[in-house]
Design a protein around this nucleic acid. Sequence first.
DNA 1: TCATTAACTGAGG
DNA 2: CCTCAGTTAATGA
Length: 243
Amino acid sequence: MNREIVSDELIRRLQATSVLDEEDVRAIRSLPLVVKRFRANEVIVHDGDRPSECCLVMEGFCLRSKTTSDGRRQILSIHMPGDIPDLQTLHLHLMDHDLAAVTDCTLGFINHAALREVTRCRSGVAEVFWRDTLIDAARFREWIVNVGQRPALTRLAHILLEVRERLKIINKVRGNRFEMPLTQEQLGDAMGITPVHVNRVVKQLRDEGVVEFQRGAVTVVNEGRLEQIADFDDLYLHQAPSA
DNA sequence: TCATTAACTGAGG
DNA sequence: CCTCAGTTAATGA
């Protein structure tokens, strides 16, 4: 497959939280990418795999999930362009969950050796990837609180606001509208509830004039009410720039 | 295939 | 008795 240049979304995301000098940015941009495309619902990396590369999401949405022995799936995180969802495989070689495509996706695969080389040579790059992994962990903590303690309506509103805040970072929010391509069944697996109950809370948000759902997109109609419902505080995303 | 809705059920407060 | 959520089933887009 062809080689391409590391996308702007990754750089924009990293620079939102960290100061990168020009050499660091150049080093990240010149990482060799092998571009591959995946169809919606295709598994990209399987639980139990030992990948030799990390993947950068370039287009589309992905998710991470684990499946119980009786076949129930818990979605753990949602990923969008600029994310490197399996960055941890650089140091934890065994995949302990699945990475799958939500929509048709374009991913850039970066060889572990090349990533190790750049983090060894440039401490600024090592730091920014470390910070990115810690923010990933912070999102998981919030996700646990969401699934474990919040009522379904709040769970849904919270996920919507997280997706929107993260899309803002990569400049993909247009006014009060943003992409949210998960089906209600996938939302159920993300929220730990049945698809029927997802539909109930979707209906509730719609009926109360809070948001509108189009195919794969959400329009916020009542911003104040949505924030009130969502119990959302963006601190856990750690977007305030630090040195 | 995905979304929608009704009707019923039970847990728990 | 009320709210929340799972189950089942029917129907529509």
